[in-house]
Simulated scan of single mutants.
Amino acid sequence: MTRDVVRARRDTPFKELVRLLEENGVTAVPVVDELERPIGVVSEADLLRKSADQADPSGRIPVAHLEAWERAKSEGSRAEEIMSAPAVCARPEWTVVEAARLMETQHVKRLPVVDEAERLLGIVSRGDLLRIFLRRDEAIREEITEDLLRRTLGLDARDVTAEVRGGQVTLAGAVKYRSLIPLVEQLCRRVDGVVSVSGNLIYRTDDVRPAADGG
């Protein structure tokens, strides 16, 4: 996330909001209350409603039809009247997958990041989430091999190996139990920068299929 966040207050006027976006090279700013808690977000789209509501002097382009809530925002002059609310927020400990899923389901392009008291810590954008896929293959392989397979799962380096090319992970080797295979694959997919996970892991003991009834 970006920690140095440009922000607005409830009473920040329209022209100041435009200036904040322009001077800081951003497309949206969170609006915070007196306790630094995000209460909404003002984006370029929110501000452009002001122009969309104006008649074309030439008369060639009809005035856009706006819903009542859109018209109220287009007539606003302060951040609290213009912003999209409530703010959809993330937590700092979330994974990239969790943040991306929330963006997708809520149809937003950025998420303010807040602490336990709902105070603003930073902001994460779609570009921030995509940046992790620039991570080097060697760094991904080392995290999977040393941190995940060895330390977390206790697997021997001679049993399971991981090769990474272009963020695509290929697993090979054998694990003790069949139930470990989907767990290993799932954990690998959660590593930053991983695009896909494939392989042909085998198992020594089938602890998934019920044992045959000997009676």
Rank of each mutant, 00 (worst) to 15 (best):
V32H: 00
L35Q: 15
L35F: 10
E36T: 09
R37S: 01
P38T: 05
P38N: 05
I39Q: 00
I39N: 01
V41R: 00
V42R: 01
S43K: 04
S43Q: 07
E44Y: 04
E44G: 07
A45G: 14
A45E: 13
D46P: 05
D46M: 06
L48K: 08
L48N: 08
L48H: 10
L48V: 14
R49A: 12
K50T: 08
S51P: 05
S51D: 11
A52H: 11
D53I: 06
D53N: 15
Q54I: 11
A55K: 14
A55S: 14
A55T: 12
D56Y: 07
D56R: 11
S58G: 14
S58V: 12
G59K: 12
G59F: 13
G59Q: 13
G59S: 13
G59D: 12
P62L: 10
V63C: 06
W69I: 10
W69N: 13
E70M: 08
E70S: 10
R71Y: 10
A72H: 13
K73D: 02
K73I: 08
E75K: 15
S77L: 10
R78Y: 11
E81I: 05
S84G: 13
S84R: 08
A85I: 00
P86T: 06
A87R: 00
A87M: 06
V88T: 14
V88A: 03
C89K: 11
C89N: 06
C89E: 07
W94F: 09
V96D: 03
V97W: 12
A100S: 14
A100N: 08
R101I: 09
T105G: 05
T105C: 07
Q106R: 15
H107R: 15
L111N: 02
L111K: 01
L111Y: 01
P112K: 03
P112D: 05
V113H: 01
D115T: 08
D115R: 11
D115L: 09
E116G: 07
E118V: 01
E118W: 09
E118Q: 15
L120R: 02
L120K: 01
L121F: 03
G122N: 03
V124P: 01
V124H: 00
S125M: 05
L130C: 12
L130T: 10
I132Q: 14
F133I: 11
F133R: 09
R135N: 04
R135S: 06
R136I: 08
E138L: 15
I140E: 01
I140W: 00
E142V: 11
E142L: 13
E143W: 08
I144A: 02
I144L: 12
T145I: 06
E146S: 13
D147F: 06
D147A: 14
D147S: 15
L149Y: 00
L153E: 02
G154I: 07
G154Y: 07
G154V: 11
L155N: 05
L155W: 03
D156M: 08
D156F: 04
A157M: 07
A157F: 07
V160Q: 04
V160R: 03
T161I: 09
T161K: 14
E163C: 05
V164N: 01
V164A: 04
V169R: 02
T170R: 14
T170L: 14
